[in-house]
Design a protein around this nucleic acid. Sequence first.
DNA 1: AAGTGCGTTGCGCTAGTTGCAACAGATTTT
DNA 2: AAAATCTGTTGCAACTAGCGCAACGCACTT
Lengths: 265, 265
Amino acid sequence: MDEKLAVSSAGLRRDLEILEVLAGHGDGLDTDGFGVSWIAQRLGREKSQVSRALRALEAEGMVERDPLTRRYHLGWRLFALASRTQQARLVQVSAPFLRRLAATFNEDAHLCVLRGDQVLTLVSIPSSRAYHRIWEGVSVPVTMAAAGRSLLADWAPAQVRELLRAPLPAGLDSAVSDEERWMTDLGHARSFGYVVSDVELDDSPAAVSAPVWDHRGLITGAISVSITRLADVTHAHAMGRVIAETARELSAGLGRLPRPTGAEL
Amino acid sequence: MDEKLAVSSAGLRRDLEILEVLAGHGDGLDTDGFGVSWIAQRLGREKSQVSRALRALEAEGMVERDPLTRRYHLGWRLFALASRTQQARLVQVSAPFLRRLAATFNEDAHLCVLRGDQVLTLVSIPSSRAYHRIWEGVSVPVTMAAAGRSLLADWAPAQVRELLRAPLPAGLDSAVSDEERWMTDLGHARSFGYVVSDVELDDSPAAVSAPVWDHRGLITGAISVSITRLADVTHAHAMGRVIAETARELSAGLGRLPRPTGAEL
DNA sequence: AAGTGCGTTGCGCTAGTTGCAACAGATTTT
DNA sequence: AAAATCTGTTGCAACTAGCGCAACGCACTT
């Protein structure tokens, strides 16, 4: 009947779906957590299943329950584990650099990494003026993120083309048609250490981004600084040089080997 | 036979044991992760079991594998889950600690975060004595808030100076002239985990504040306890030590990195 | 070539998970 | 008060999925 989908324990998938729901209050301010029935309905699963899974998760500290409201939210152990990821270290090292950029340009500064075909924003430093949309922990397709061009800069052209031609989520397909423009941008990122991107997502502004290298000489992340106040192109490139220099300092802080910039593949 | 009345799914327990092993690279040298056999031996489990579990975990993004060394380490998804819900958790977890402080000192206790150049108070627990001014949801410039010193404690000195020199709203410009005093206070916050602030806003009392770290190793908030009844300075510092300890407990609940920060910029 | 350590996979057996339905509290409605 | 609804938990038989063993492929060393 149903295909056996290679390897994925069903229990794990269920547990992670639950955790994802509990993390999913990016929209409103549901700070109280969620109840069993609500979660079960949202996942299309049996109440009993969710109830038992949550109890197991609670016993392990992955979720916690308010004894009064009986609602669940994510638990201490998840946060403890998250602190041991290498992303946490990356964030810690990059934060001062991002703050400096945010202050210098009075624009939001982000640090993004590539996960599959998605760009995940690890940390966002808002500009001093206001508090903008929170991108932290959010993934967008690489083709639609400003930082995407920097993150793919050391890829082989053939693989980039393959990724660009992959189908996008419904309704978003037209924005990135210009494949040649992409290839040019990637070359620019390689040569100059930064690249300027136009608007691609409705609610994400144009941005200047720069790749960050790790100790192996691979691109592990990208700095991205948004441009809300449209200046002329020359100004954007002046920004780019500063951001590229910052990315180089950050790369050095991550233990990047003292290797010349332009000589990757 | 050992009857486990604990309803804990064995698969979940196994997965978490594995994650815990992968997290345990904080002790010695930073390894690049661990191999299947090493993990299996360390847990006293079958290799095959661990191999299959790790593949499932990898498919879900909970762990990542270096394609070259075939070693596993913790994955991006843990970090993403934690990041998306970090702020809600801050509010959740801090409430009991704030209540304890408010009861202990019979003073108002607050939880503040930094938003741009403003300090926003997320939670206020009033002391039992009387109704005070409600600060919840109120923003004040970082230079004028008692919690400001704690919130900036992990910033680079140059950034702090820049922020301090930024123009204030009309009519409020004179209060924070003492830049050096600020830098000293930040050092104190870093060294001792708390800092005592004098009166700065007319209607805001002096206060003792302490920085709170999150799972990324960044300061995400600050506990602030007001001092309405002026005692001697020694007493304020005694308060500070208690508040700093509370902030540490709160940070632990947020998954603060185990290695105490000391030597950042 | 044989030897070692590593990680993956095939397969019978058993144990753990599933889904239904009944149950028990907590609120709300009649 | 009783009834109606909501909530979340639990007992049970059917069944599926995870377990351990052993064999296998692979990369290095001897």
